[in-house]
Design a protein around this nucleic acid. Structure first.
Lengths: 148, 148
DNA sequence: CTTTGTTGATTATCATGGTAACTATATGGA
DNA sequence: TCCATATAGTTACCATGATAATCAACAAAG
């Protein structure tokens, strides 16, 4: 994600308001502020995960699997649904996590179409290694956030 | 951008808190909520711009140029700086906007390295066509937002 | 005036998101 | 049973972000 370095001031938004009366200056101002804050936090998170051989998506897959904690694991399509990403992207990303030893897959006995994905021990370990710094990063970001 | 469909409840965050005492439950909760809201709004904006032969980046380039309103226009690197995107991406995207007739470029007289980018009439028209719906979309999103 | 370094823009390549189309398996009705 | 349809996963391809390397033009020092 990315966003404007310098957001439009309220004065500039006011001038747009005369051109487009439907707009609400406060709502637009708040929305732009939120988008920028989210953009900055996402960038920090991306960098943090990248420094730990992960990505935001790879992390989310691990955390979802840990949270569900099903011995059978989850289907690729269930993961895609929960993380809100397309199935082809999930297929590809799960494959890289299997290659890296953080996930394991098994064919389903009853249904030949289904592949079940679960965390390996290394996957659990990676999560435990990464989570403290993740929470710390969020804490610091929110503490320094000059919200309205 | 993307994000979890279902965020961890406060209870789940509490249980993580016992494992990782450094984390602040409220901060993490607020941060995750913000990230998801931003993700949902970004998706709506992306769809809106795509339906108007734009993208978020293409829109931002147009709005920055209109806001600065310099007859000479802006350099590619100045645009990249303001929109917070890499210069190669800016080069590529400016080129597509020139191809579509929304921007025009001119070499600088004094300095052969510099290329100045400015809005065409069609570029201005596109902005004016797109802005009302853009503000309306943001207004509606913020109005429906169940913030904390 | 030439060499050296800097700056603006671009090219090449990679990463990671998406959609469309395909394969294999399962399911349900004629 | 057999065919039509649906579902899970994948493959192929495209869009758009990044970084590293390259090219051309400028500037400054010897």
């Amino acid at each position: 994600m990315f966003f404007l370095k310098e957001l439009p001031s309220r004065e500039i938004l006011q001038s747009y308001q005369t051109r487009f009366p439907a707009m609400n200056v406060d709502n637009v101002h708040d929305a732009l502020h939120m988008l920028r804050q989210a953009s900055l936090l996402m960038r920090q998170l991306d960098n943090y995960f990248a420094a730990n051989d992960l990505s935001t998506l790879r992390y989310l897959i691990l955390i979802v699997l840990e949270r569900e904690d099903l011995p059978e694991g989850l289907m690729v399509s269930e993961l895609a649904e929960r993380v809100d990403v397309s199935r082809p992207v999930m297929t590809r990303t799960v494959q890289t996590l299997v290659d890296d030893g953080l996930l394991a897959t098994r064919a389903c006995d009853n249904d030949g179409r289904i592949k079940r994905v679960r965390l390996t021990v290394a996957g659990h370990d990676t999560l435990n290694r990464v989570l403290p710094g993740y929470y710390q990063l969020i804490d610091r970001f929110m503490a320094s956030d000059t919200r309205l």
